[in-house]
Deep mutational scan, measured.
Amino acid sequence: VCKLPGCTKRYTDPSSLRKHVKTVH
């Protein structure tokens, strides 16, 4: 789960979560 406020994205893969945080936030 993306911990950033207002973000409801969920990821099972930690690397995918990191990529999400880098690109989306």
Results as ranks from 00 to 15, higher is better:
1 V>M: 11
1 V>E: 13
1 V>Q: 10
1 V>G: 01
1 V>C: 03
1 V>R: 00
1 V>D: 07
1 V>T: 08
1 V>N: 06
1 V>L: 05
1 V>H: 09
1 V>F: 07
1 V>P: 03
1 V>K: 03
1 V>S: 02
1 V>I: 09
1 V>A: 03
1 V>W: 00
1 V>Y: 06
2 C>A: 02
2 C>P: 05
2 C>G: 06
2 C>M: 05
2 C>R: 00
2 C>S: 05
2 C>F: 05
2 C>E: 06
2 C>V: 04
2 C>I: 03
2 C>Y: 04
2 C>D: 13
2 C>N: 11
2 C>T: 01
2 C>K: 03
2 C>Q: 05
2 C>W: 02
2 C>L: 02
3 K>T: 07
3 K>Y: 12
3 K>C: 05
3 K>D: 11
3 K>S: 09
3 K>G: 08
3 K>P: 07
3 K>E: 09
3 K>H: 08
3 K>W: 10
3 K>A: 01
3 K>Q: 05
3 K>N: 11
3 K>L: 03
3 K>R: 05
3 K>M: 09
3 K>I: 03
3 K>V: 02
3 K>F: 05
4 L>A: 06
4 L>K: 02
4 L>Q: 13
4 L>W: 10
4 L>C: 10
4 L>V: 14
4 L>D: 14
4 L>N: 14
4 L>Y: 15
4 L>H: 14
4 L>G: 07
4 L>E: 15
4 L>M: 13
4 L>I: 14
4 L>T: 05
4 L>S: 12
4 L>P: 00
4 L>R: 00
4 L>F: 15
5 P>H: 09
5 P>V: 03
5 P>S: 10
5 P>G: 04
5 P>I: 06
5 P>L: 05
5 P>A: 04
5 P>T: 11
5 P>M: 06
5 P>R: 01
5 P>N: 10
5 P>D: 06
5 P>W: 01
5 P>E: 13
5 P>Y: 05
5 P>C: 02
5 P>Q: 05
5 P>K: 04
5 P>F: 08
6 G>C: 03
6 G>M: 04
6 G>K: 00
6 G>V: 02
6 G>S: 06
6 G>P: 02
6 G>E: 09
6 G>H: 05
6 G>W: 00
6 G>N: 11
6 G>Y: 00
6 G>D: 10
6 G>R: 00
6 G>Q: 00
6 G>I: 00
6 G>F: 00
6 G>L: 01
6 G>A: 02
6 G>T: 02
7 C>L: 02
7 C>W: 01
7 C>F: 00
7 C>M: 03
7 C>E: 08
7 C>V: 01
7 C>N: 08
7 C>S: 05
7 C>Q: 04
7 C>P: 04
7 C>D: 10
7 C>I: 00
7 C>G: 06
7 C>R: 00
7 C>Y: 00
7 C>A: 04
7 C>K: 00
7 C>H: 01
7 C>T: 04
8 T>V: 06
8 T>C: 10
8 T>N: 14
8 T>K: 05
8 T>P: 01
8 T>H: 07
8 T>Y: 08
8 T>G: 14
8 T>I: 01
8 T>Q: 08
8 T>A: 12
8 T>M: 11
8 T>R: 06
8 T>L: 05
8 T>W: 02
8 T>E: 11
8 T>F: 09
8 T>S: 11
8 T>D: 14
9 K>C: 12
9 K>T: 07
9 K>F: 15
9 K>H: 08
9 K>R: 06
9 K>G: 09
9 K>Y: 15
9 K>I: 06
9 K>A: 15
9 K>E: 13
9 K>S: 09
9 K>D: 10
9 K>V: 07
9 K>Q: 05
9 K>P: 02
9 K>N: 13
9 K>M: 10
9 K>L: 02
9 K>W: 14
10 R>S: 15
10 R>K: 12
10 R>P: 12
10 R>V: 12
10 R>F: 05
10 R>Q: 14
10 R>D: 13
10 R>W: 03
10 R>T: 14
10 R>H: 14
10 R>E: 14
10 R>A: 14
10 R>I: 06
10 R>L: 09
10 R>Y: 05
10 R>N: 15
10 R>M: 08
10 R>G: 11
10 R>C: 12
11 Y>P: 07
11 Y>G: 11
11 Y>E: 14
11 Y>F: 15
11 Y>C: 14
11 Y>A: 07
11 Y>H: 10
11 Y>V: 09
11 Y>W: 01
11 Y>R: 06
11 Y>K: 11
11 Y>N: 11
11 Y>D: 12
11 Y>M: 12
11 Y>Q: 10
11 Y>L: 10
11 Y>I: 05
11 Y>S: 13
11 Y>T: 07
12 T>Y: 01
12 T>P: 13
12 T>F: 03
12 T>W: 02
12 T>L: 04
12 T>N: 13
12 T>Q: 11
12 T>E: 13
12 T>C: 08
12 T>H: 07
12 T>I: 03
12 T>G: 09
12 T>M: 10
12 T>K: 09
12 T>V: 07
12 T>D: 13
12 T>S: 14
12 T>A: 12
12 T>R: 02
13 D>S: 06
13 D>I: 02
13 D>L: 02
13 D>C: 02
13 D>Q: 03
13 D>E: 09
13 D>N: 10
13 D>G: 00
13 D>F: 03
13 D>Y: 00
13 D>A: 00
13 D>T: 01
13 D>V: 01
13 D>P: 01
13 D>W: 05
13 D>M: 01
13 D>H: 03
13 D>R: 00
13 D>K: 00
14 P>V: 09
14 P>N: 12
14 P>E: 15
14 P>Q: 10
14 P>C: 07
14 P>I: 13
14 P>Y: 07
14 P>M: 14
14 P>S: 11
14 P>H: 04
14 P>T: 09
14 P>F: 02
14 P>D: 12
14 P>R: 06
14 P>A: 10
14 P>K: 09
14 P>W: 02
14 P>G: 07
14 P>L: 09
15 S>R: 04
15 S>C: 12
15 S>V: 07
15 S>G: 11
15 S>K: 10
15 S>W: 01
15 S>F: 08
15 S>M: 09
15 S>Y: 04
15 S>H: 11
15 S>T: 08
15 S>A: 13
15 S>E: 15
15 S>N: 12
15 S>D: 14
15 S>L: 09
15 S>I: 07
15 S>Q: 08
15 S>P: 03
16 S>E: 15
16 S>V: 08
16 S>P: 06
16 S>M: 15
16 S>A: 14
16 S>N: 15
16 S>W: 01
16 S>L: 14
16 S>H: 13
16 S>Y: 05
16 S>R: 04
16 S>Q: 13
16 S>F: 01
16 S>K: 11
16 S>D: 15
16 S>C: 11
16 S>G: 08
16 S>T: 07
16 S>I: 09
17 L>Y: 08
17 L>G: 06
17 L>D: 12
17 L>P: 08
17 L>S: 07
17 L>E: 12
17 L>N: 09
17 L>H: 05
17 L>I: 04
17 L>K: 06
17 L>Q: 06
17 L>V: 04
17 L>F: 04
17 L>R: 01
17 L>T: 06
17 L>C: 04
17 L>M: 12
17 L>A: 09
17 L>W: 03
18 R>A: 15
18 R>C: 12
18 R>Q: 15
18 R>W: 07
18 R>M: 13
18 R>H: 15
18 R>V: 13
18 R>P: 08
18 R>S: 14
18 R>Y: 08
18 R>G: 12
18 R>E: 15
18 R>I: 13
18 R>N: 15
18 R>D: 15
18 R>L: 12
18 R>F: 06
18 R>T: 15
18 R>K: 13
19 K>Y: 14
19 K>P: 11
19 K>D: 15
19 K>G: 07
19 K>R: 11
19 K>E: 15
19 K>M: 13
19 K>Q: 15
19 K>N: 14
19 K>W: 12
19 K>T: 12
19 K>I: 12
19 K>H: 13
19 K>S: 13
19 K>C: 12
19 K>A: 14
19 K>L: 10
19 K>F: 08
19 K>V: 10
20 H>Y: 03
20 H>T: 01
20 H>G: 04
20 H>N: 08
20 H>L: 00
20 H>Q: 02
20 H>V: 04
20 H>R: 00
20 H>E: 06
20 H>D: 11
20 H>K: 00
20 H>W: 01
20 H>A: 03
20 H>C: 02
20 H>F: 00
20 H>S: 04
20 H>I: 00
20 H>P: 03
20 H>M: 05
21 V>R: 01
21 V>F: 00
21 V>L: 04
21 V>D: 09
21 V>P: 02
21 V>M: 13
21 V>Q: 10
21 V>I: 03
21 V>Y: 02
21 V>E: 15
21 V>S: 03
21 V>A: 07
21 V>K: 00
21 V>N: 05
21 V>C: 06
21 V>T: 02
21 V>H: 04
21 V>G: 08
21 V>W: 02
22 K>Q: 14
22 K>N: 13
22 K>G: 11
22 K>D: 14
22 K>C: 11
22 K>S: 13
22 K>P: 09
22 K>V: 11
22 K>M: 10
22 K>R: 10
22 K>W: 08
22 K>A: 14
22 K>Y: 07
22 K>E: 15
22 K>I: 10
22 K>T: 13
22 K>L: 12
22 K>H: 12
22 K>F: 09
23 T>G: 04
23 T>A: 09
23 T>I: 04
23 T>Y: 03
23 T>R: 02
23 T>Q: 10
23 T>W: 02
23 T>E: 15
23 T>H: 06
23 T>S: 10
23 T>M: 07
23 T>V: 11
23 T>K: 03
23 T>F: 07
23 T>C: 08
23 T>L: 06
23 T>D: 14
23 T>P: 06
23 T>N: 07
24 V>M: 09
24 V>R: 03
24 V>C: 12
24 V>I: 04
24 V>L: 04
24 V>P: 11
24 V>S: 10
24 V>G: 13
24 V>A: 12
24 V>N: 07
24 V>D: 15
24 V>Q: 15
24 V>F: 08
24 V>W: 04
24 V>H: 11
24 V>E: 13
24 V>Y: 11
24 V>T: 05
24 V>K: 08
25 H>S: 04
25 H>V: 03
25 H>D: 11
25 H>K: 05
25 H>F: 01
25 H>T: 10
25 H>L: 01
25 H>I: 01
25 H>P: 09
25 H>G: 07
25 H>M: 03
25 H>E: 08
25 H>A: 06
25 H>N: 08
25 H>Y: 01
25 H>W: 00
25 H>Q: 08
25 H>R: 01
